[in-house]
Every structure is written in C-alpha cells, then in structure tokens.
C-alpha cells in the first residue's frame, strides 16, 4: 500500500459532479504532476483533498497513515502531515505572518496554549525562518505584515512555499503554484521545493502548464480530463502535452504552452 492513496474519489460543487472517480497512489519520495485543462477538476481535487467546506465528497476515500482523511477537519489533515499551497492565497487582515507561522508551528507540535514545553522557542523559530527565507530570496520585512496583505503575486506564492518549508509536511499539494509567477519567482520556488524533495516528502503538483515541470521534474504525470485520469505515465507524458496540448481528449481548446 502506498503512503497516500486516493481511491475512486468523487466530488461535486453546488450539486454539480466534478470529480468522477480519481484514483492515485503517492509514495513519499515521489513527485506526481496532475495536469489538465480548465474545468477538468484540478482545483476541486486540491480543495477536496484538503477539506474545503465548499466541496462535497460523493464517494471514495483518501487514506494516509491508516486514516481516511476525508472524515477529518482541514486542520487535522494538516497536523497529520498534509499541506496545500494555495493557487490564490487568502488575505487575512490583522494577523501578522509571524503570528500565523508561529501559531501553525505550535499547532503542529501539539501546543494548545497550556503545555509550554511543546511551544517553539523564539530562538528556534527565528533560526528556522532565517534559513528558509534565504532559499526563497525573501527578506524578513514581510513578517510583520498581515497575512498575504498587499503581497505581489510572486510574494504570495513564495510565502506559501515558506509555510511549507516551515511546517515540513509529508504530502504536499502544490495547486497552480506557477500561475501568475515571473520566471525568477518560479526558479526560487522550484529551488525551495527541490531542496525539500527526498524520502520524507511526497509531492502532488497540480498544473495547467508544463512550465513548472521544467524546474521540478516529476516522477509521474497524470492527465485529468472531465474529472477522470485519461493518461498516466512518466515525465514523457508532460513532453507529449507540451507538443499536442489537451486536444486529443476532445473538445478542449487550450494548449499547455500558453503561459498565463
């Protein structure tokens, strides 16, 4: 059995069926890419995996560490070791990035405001942050700012990866992390993700375009069309999409090389 198994996952949004039976096994140490045209169900997949309340699970299960995570709250999934890098990181006014990161780290360590021994020390927190900021070519001026407030597109995406680096998940879902990014930001983000790659991390990259896969080489590529995988294979699948787009699966216009 794989470390993270999606079995026949079906999900809908506002009564409309979007995922029509998705099965995928991810082991730690592997990088999987899910590619698909607009409307294929990519963002439904990422949101359903993380437990967004706007998506309804109609069937199937997702098994991670012996648990069906579909029955868990989003925060329980996160503490179990899942992470979602958002396509559109949310602006939350009034909460500083520092406060946010520290609270998230403490939650992961099981600190609930009582047992101080579980709390991250200020020194440890600072030194962790410092290292990760350097990799992402970020300075610490954004730390006192409110969560994603006034961040540029590139800053938001880098901040997502910073959170991932701090929280050290075992299964990371990167949802359209390359969209809206300039080439430098993509490189910094890819460098950071590549540093985290290794036997302790499984990655699921969800993307419309092949561009990010030039920097983060996937082990497996799956093509999602109309809520189902229509093709799975190695990196060569991405190369094929690079040339032909999604047109071979019917009435799909957009080509992956069109960069947003």
């Amino acid at each position: 059995m794989a470390d993270f198994e999606i079995r026949d996952l079906r999900a809908s949004v506002e009564g409309k069926e979007i995922l029509k039976g998705v099965t995928l096994a991810i082991n730690k140490g592997e990088v999987h890419a899910v590619m698909g045209p607009n409307g294929s169900g990519k963002s439904t997949l990422s949101h359903t995996l993380m437990g967004h309340p706007g998506y309804t699970v109609d069937g199937g299960e997702v098994v991670f560490k012996g648990k069906n995570v579909l029955a868990l709250q989003p925060d329980e999934r996160a503490r179990l070791g899942m992470f979602l890098a958002f396509q559109y990181p949310v602006v939350v006014p009034g909460i500083s990035m520092t406060n946010f990161l520290r609270t998230a780290l403490n939650a992961k360590r099981g600190y609930d405001g009582k047992d101080k021994s579980k709390q991250i020390s200020p020194k440890e927190f600072r030194s962790m942050l410092k290292g990760e900021l350097e990799v992402l070519h970020m300075d610490d001026s954004f730390l006192p700012r409110y969560i994603n407030d006034g961040f540029s597109g590139g800053e938001k995406k880098r901040a997502e990866i910073l959170q991932m680096a701090m929280l050290k998940p075992e299964i990371a879902i990167l949802d359209e992390t390359d969209s809206g990014l300039d080439i430098d930001s993509i490189k910094f983000v890819a460098e950071a993700v590549n540093r985290m790659r290794g036997p302790e991390l499984g990655v699921l990259i969800i993307t419309h375009y092949t561009r990010i896969l030039e920097f983060i080489k996937p082990d497996y590529v799956h093509v999602l069309v109309d809520g189902r995988f229509v093709l799975s294979g190695g990196p060569e699948v991405a190369d094929r999409l690079e040339k032909t787009g999604y047109s071979e699966w019917g009435d799909v216009e957009d080509k992956p090389e069109e960069v947003a």
């Binding site: 709250q73 989003p74 925060d75 996160a78 939350v92 009034g94 909460i95 939650a107 969560i147 929280l167």
Partner: peptide
C-alpha cells in the same frame, strides 16, 4: 479554511480572525 489548512484548529483560527479584525 486557510488558517485551518495550516493545522490551526477552528476555534483558535476564529479567535485569531476576530483578534485580527
């Protein structure tokens, strides 16, 4: 959802959002 997706329990997340407000 964003705060919860980082492992922060709903009650804590709500309190943070109110404090932020």
């Amino acid at each position: 959802f964003y705060l919860q997706s980082r492992g922060i329990p709903a009650t804590t997340a709500k309190r943070m959002i109110v404090q932020g407000f």
